[in-house]
Design a protein around this nucleic acid. Sequence first.
RNA 1: GCCAGCGUAGCUCAAUCGGCAGAGCAACGGAUUUGUAAUCCGUAGGUUGCCAGUUCGAUUCUGGCCGCUGGCUCCA
Length: 647
Amino acid sequence: MIRISLPDGSVKEVVAGTPILEVITSIGPRLAKAAICAVVDGVLTDVREPLTQDSTLTVLTKEDTRVLETIRHTTSHIMAQAVKRLFPDVKLGIGPAIDEGFYYDFDLTAALADEDLERILAEMKTIVSQNLPIIRKELTVAEARTLLQSLGETYKLELLDELSNLEGETITFFEQGEFIDLCRGPHLQSTGALNPDAVKLLSVAGAYWRGDEKRPMLQRIYGTAWEKATDLEAYEWRQEEAAKRDHRKLGKDLDLFSIHEEGGAGLVCWHPKGARLKRTIEEFWYQQHDLGGYEIVATPHIGKATLWSISGHLDFYRDGMYSPMDIDGVDYYIKPMNCPYQILIYKTKVHSYRELPLRLAEMGTVYRYERSGVLHGLMRVRGFTIDDAHIICRPDQVDEEIRRVYAFSMNMLMAFGFTEFDIYLSTRPHGDKAVGEIERWEQATDALRAALDERGLPYQVDEGGGAFYGPKIDIKVKDSLGRSWQCSTIQFDFNLPDRFDMTYIAEDGKEHRPFMVHRALLGSLERFIGCLIENYSGAFPVWLSPIQANVIPIADRHVEYAHRVADQMRTAGIRVTVNETSERMNAKIRNAQLQKIPYMLVIGDREQDAGSVAVRLRTEEDLGDMKVHDAVNLIRSRIEDKSQQLT
RNA sequence: GCCAGCGUAGCUCAAUCGGCAGAGCAACGGAUUUGUAAUCCGUAGGUUGCCAGUUCGAUUCUGGCCGCUGGCUCCA
């Protein structure tokens, strides 16, 4: 007998091997009917699985959001069944549930088009209406192999080979009608349990088998599934809202930047307003770095092959570099990274241990080859500016420096209004792929971990995910469509100090190798601005707004006073424009609103006589009449405190 | 790079099952001088991404290239 603990604190004793569903039935037949899946010892589990040891059991019904994973997984099976009915020669890849939906990969001779998605969905609805029971089966490896061979599922056979090594002898399958699939589960109890009105097939995409581009490309169908049709509608509405925040659309609407076919893919042109935004960020960044103990440097855009050969870039990073250009018979490369030149600056003299830590920083523009298919607005480009710095320090300074730089990084990101991050700690790659002594790796990794723990924010550890040259912390922020983009990175480097033979003279009068840390806080300025645009939907806090105030004279006779007001504002350091077109006031307000200008200063006879302005906010709030200097003070204080508040 | 889709005026989008390419906004000219999200009238704007091919005729069909979108892979 084994003991099963239930959420209400009660305990049921059952024979080992009793299926979960039987236990649930003994709790109540109604619950058994409503049960979609279960959580056993914290793991999402199919209700047909047997309980083999003492465990805690939670039954999930459709009220629990965790069942979505099960619903989506079953939907992917139903989709695969539909595809198999329509295209009998199809071979199945994998079909998991993902964040907001599911996909399934198919090896199919015919190319799938949107019309096919409609046909597939129609067939899926048929399968739902047939209400086929979903049966869980346990087979031995040999039985499983025979079954998959008879089905001709070569990809599944490959998966089976890996599974049979890992999981011993029992392989689970799920069967619904004529369809059977190798699968761990959990699944719904029948195809009829799916709500066909809450399912949508979204897109077809190519995907390499097992993510390996040397292997066949399969056709992946993405879809989404929910409990209720209203949930699907809510999801679609969220997608539409997210699309409105897309930085590519807002970049155009707000006249921030452009990328040109004639100029080249992935090469960004900043328009006046976008460049203003970029400059504001840079000015703040320089100011913070002055306060933070950094020395600002500047380095060239191209460099001789010699440099990239010493640094190892020509060996390890060649794929990311552009072809050399010939200057007087010597190969020069456009720089993909800033570090080698900063190291040359370090090496121009002998350094005492007293000088360290040395923190060299620059806004360094680099160019990297990116395959055409991965380019994406400002988020993935071929030319970008990194807010790059290299911290060179003694071993005894590592802890303090990492703590400082991590805090500096978080403060910087938070100053720009980001509050949600995904933080990763990547440790030493396994095997002999990593350079540098193990002790150094350990010291460095401990320093990174300590800084993260001290701050107390949750992070994930990517074991073995570090670069070959050192462990690192990565901080990612999410875009409007939920894709996460790396901004900050703090990376130890045990490679370049050796390659460039960097040294300092310690107390013992001998040369020692310093630690070196690469770090970027904003990452790529281009990407960072893309994230900023999406984070704020283009309605930037006042200090970042390219235009902070727009003066709106009601009639031509107010234009002169409007300019006097604007001059006062400008003198006070406010970025202000005057709308002197012959549009009506309503149109002027609308245009300012569409440009997401935080303050609209309306001026008519009343204001002109009183020496005031009528302040309207882009939030549609009307602050009414205000003396000009009061308006100036209000806007100035919102610029200075960098808040998102306008009042 | 690979798979699929897309590319029409500055922007958003129509249209042509192969037969003179259209609207709104923006721009420009004029009138209007307006009180919190679009004043009216007019003018101009295009080798339908580029290059070939098929055809009496291609923006439409075919091929190549460039670019964009969604993925795969990689990364700031």
